[in-house]
């Protein structure tokens, strides 16, 4: 399976990369690890493949995990493997570290990036749901160097479609500081093992008040809608109340009602919906107990 022909450019700054992307428009693609892009190019009919590949590897300073103001930023070239192994990520965003560890294979985690995983905009992207529950946003750069921040929730528009405008590139993904008594968790189900793309994935976050009621609840579902999705009505079932087993079960059932799964090779829609309920319950129980609450 040879790659189609293309021109390869390696700009030395993000601004230069944006200019190149704007100049070549739809004929160009940005490349981080290339594990999605090159695979897609091998599979695409020649006419559909990009003519120019803009490699980001030559841009310095993108391979970083930074803590600022108590929050976390992950650069555009930071590997899934680095995120999975980072003590900072494991401490501040354990569900993200767990999701990064569950993505693909050892080799692909040594090549692929978290930002690439987001920009590829697969509904099943492993790192999308944990970042949604942590309230992450992406920092975009456009030609001229202007920057804007987009909440991750507004970034995904459909399978393979994002809010990236012409010439825009993601510089980093940012996670705000965690709330006080917080617990979070990632659950994933696939046909055989973690090498398979997830059939369903669920992330949850529970922040507890001093009185033990859930001040903030976040539930995000993957692979059960055209985009990774927040289950907001399920979150409202729990917010302001103590996370008892009964309420957690009600919230999980609400999450399953919010899913809009399709049937495909990985799973039937009906099975996916039932599994959302199971995984959401499991995940909420775990998040609540990590936060120090009951359930």
């Amino acid at each position: 399976m040879p790659l189609p022909r293309f021109r390869y450019v390696a700009p030395e700054s993000l601004e230069a990369a944006c200019e190149l992307l704007a100049e070549h428009g739809d004929r160009a693609r940005v490349m981080a690890g290339g594990t999605d892009l090159l695979l897609r190019m091998k599979r695409l009919p020649r006419a559909g493949a990009p003519e120019v590949v803009i490699g980001l590897r030559g841009v310095p300073g993108l391979d970083t995990i930074r803590i600022d103001d108590g929050g976390l930023s992950i650069g555009a070239l930071t590997l899934l493997a680095s995120v999975a192994g980072s003590t900072d990520v494991n401490r501040l965003c354990p569900a993200l570290a767990s999701a990064a560890r569950s993505t693909a294979t050892v080799q692909i985690r040594n090549m692929g990036t978290v930002v690439g995983n987001l920009c590829n905009a697969s509904p099943a992207a492993d790192t999308a749901t944990p970042l949604l529950v942590y309230g992450a946003s992406v920092l975009l750069v456009r030609p001229g160097g202007e920057r804007r921040t987009v909440p991750l929730e507004d970034f995904f528009l459909g399978p393979g479609r994002t809010a990236l405008g012409p010439g825009e590139i993601v510089a980093e993904v940012r996670v705000p500081p965690p709330c006080g008594r917080a617990g979070s968790d990632y659950q994933r189900l696939s046909q055989r093992s973690r090498v398979d793309i997830a059939a369903v994935c669920v992330s949850t976050l529970v922040c507890l008040d001093r009185d033990g009621s859930a001040a903030r609840v976040r539930i995000a579902l993957g692979a059960v809608a055209p985009v990774p999705l927040r289950a907001k009505s399920a979150e409202r079932v729990l917010e302001g109340r103590p996370p008892t087993a009964e309420l957690v079960a009600q919230a999980a059932a609400a999450a399953a009602r919010e899913a809009r799964p399709i049937s495909d090779v990985r799973s039937s829609g009906e099975y996916r919906r039932r599994m959302v309920e199971v995984l959401a319950r499991r995940s909420l129980v775990r998040s609540a107990s990590l936060a120090g609450g009951a359930a």
Binding site: Y8, A10, G34, T35, L39, Q107, I108, N110, M111
Partner: peptide
């Protein structure tokens, strides 16, 4: 020092 799949790696990179 990191394992990668060379079929999805560009020689130029």
């Amino acid at each position: 020092g990191r394992s990668v799949t060379s079929c999805l790696t560009l020689a130029v990179e």
